[in-house]
């Protein structure tokens, strides 16, 4: 199926919005199924979601455990003395949090099914200033760069002989906070270098840009952009009331 990038953006926004509103794992699973079906219809390689989420796996596990332990409700499955450790309610809340992250990531992948040029073009035709559209695009592009940068730094730190798993928590936090700034700044320098190379190739030289192609909405695009928000708003109203 071919859709206008802007229709896909609307889709991604609606799906992420719903993921934030829903709490129950069942609802979130349904939402995930819809997102995956859409991705498949755009011929998206699903395994990319897995590799995207992999660095965040331990964080997700951590969130899951925290939710499990600290929001006890329902039937107690495991207890230490009188203290409920694992409860049905806690498990469900934990699963909900993890599923929400997965759905939002999967919805964001809808944005990866069109080219960056189409993305900018789409926004510009909506009268979004080119510079702003470009910045949004860079931010989207920047997230994976930043994630790769983190993976690199974690590898480099360990190869200097530091066993991150064995460093006590207090020291670990101190080390991370000391490294955070240089890593963010370094990643920004890399992004800036990208921007410089764009400017040197004529970005923003002329006040008005011309485009070879125009994106045109087709009937199905209008339908998507009407149906998705309407259903989303209905579902949100139903959920909240």
């Amino acid at each position: 199926m071919k859709l206008d990038p802007r229709a896909k953006m609307v889709m991604a926004l609606c799906l992420s919005g719903l993921a934030l509103v829903y709490n129950s794992p069942l609802h979130l699973l349904l939402l995930l199924a819809v997102t995956v079906a859409l991705l498949l219809s755009f011929r998206f390689e699903l395994s990319a979601i897995g590799s995207y989420l992999k660095p965040f796996l331990s964080l997700m596990l951590f969130l899951f455990l925290i939710q499990c332990l600290f929001s006890p409700s329902g039937r107690v499955l495991l207890a230490v003395g009188t203290l409920p450790l694992v409860t049905t309610g806690g498990l469900l809340t934990g699963a909900g949090v993890v599923l929400r992250i997965v759905v939002v990531t999967a919805a964001a992948m809808l944005l990866a099914t069109f080219s960056s040029r189409d993305f900018i073009l789409g926004l510009v035709q909506w009268k979004v200033p080119y510079e702003l559209a470009f910045m949004v695009f860079i931010a989207l592009r920047f997230l994976p760069v930043f994630r790769d940068e983190l993976v690199n730094v974690v590898t480099a730190v360990q190869l200097r002989g530091v066993d991150l798993k064995k460093v006590p928590w207090g020291q670990k936090i101190a080390m991370y906070s000391r490294l955070l700034f240089p890593v963010i700044y370094g990643a920004m320098l890399k992004a800036q270098r990208l921007a410089v190379s764009m400017e040197s190739r004529g970005f923003r030289v002329y006040p008005r840009r011309t485009y070879l192609r125009r994106l045109n909405f087709r009937f199905v695009d209008y339908m998507v952009m009407l149906v998705f928000p309407v259903i989303t708003i209905m579902l949100i109203v139903l959920q909240v009331s």
């Binding site: 480099a156 190869l159 066993d163 064995k166 490294l179 240089p182 370094g186």
Partner: peptide, 20 residues
């Protein structure tokens, strides 16, 4: 990785990847 790093020093081809 840390145990290896303490025995074997590795200088990456791209220095950007190892300065933090």
């Amino acid at each position: 990785l840390a145990e290896i790093g303490r025995r074997v020093g590795y200088v990456f081809q791209n220095p950007d990847l190892q300065l933090f």
